[in-house]
Design a protein around this nucleic acid. Structure first.
Lengths: 114, 114
DNA sequence: CAAATCTGATACGGACCCGTAACAATCCGT
DNA sequence: ACGGATTGTTACGGGTCCGTATCAGATTTG
């Protein structure tokens, strides 16, 4: 199930998606924010702030702030870990799932048009 | 030559590329900046500030500032249009071509691993 | 039980980006 | 040749993000 993309196709795909994201009305998520969002939705839970920071190679405040801003628009949610109340568990939301579904559609449609 | 990506594949691809861009040492380009860069490299010249602003659906200062910052790291260059000296022609550079070549490699490699 | 450790959050100073509005330079029409 | 249009840039006020350093709360360790 491997997908082959030559240089021009890869760039055209990236161009199309970037353009679509810039032009739609949603507020642009930064590269770091989408990385976090996709990690939460694609990898198995639990997801803590510390884990996410390590996976992305950024400082913890970056994660805290990204969760603040994405939480404000309900793309993710936070909950205390009752087993170890120092931890915060980052969780998925309906809005987050819908957002990523639309993103996947955008990518898929552009890829088909290559 | 169409490329088919299902939902999970599209998201995994986007996740991998976003992660790679966040983790590498290069300073992150914003979504708008890559859009500009890719437009310049994929579409036929000439490219003026006004054209780019219209294509991206953003204000002209966004383009000017993006060209300032990308010009500082030599990803693009500017030149006055001698035919109509009001216009600025945005041009490609060697560094910009190399940057996009590497981006395409990243995308292509991740796609193949799907 | 007290000290060391670990967690996520916050304060701070600096950098960047945004859109609106104003600007100088250039071209064009009359 | 001169007033009106057009182009790219800059000034401004406001917002967001960054990393470092620091913090309070929870847990583990001795």
């Amino acid at each position: 199930m491997s997908v082959d993309l030559n240089t021009a196709q890869a760039l055209k795909l990236w161009h199309g998606v970037a353009l679509a994201l810039v032009q739609d009305d949603e507020p642009d998520l930064s590269l770091r924010q989408v990385s976090i969002l996709l990690t939460i939705y694609l990898e198995a839970p639990p997801h803590t702030v510390r884990d996410l920071a390590r996976k992305l190679g950024v400082s913890k405040p970056v994660i805290t702030r990204a969760l603040d801003s994405m939480g404000k628009v309900e793309l993710v949610s936070r909950r205390r870990d009752e087993k170890d109340r120092r931890n915060v568990l980052v969780q998925r939301t309906v809005k987050g799932a819908l957002y990523l579904e639309r993103l996947a559609d955008t990518i898929g449609n552009l890829a088909r048009r290559l």
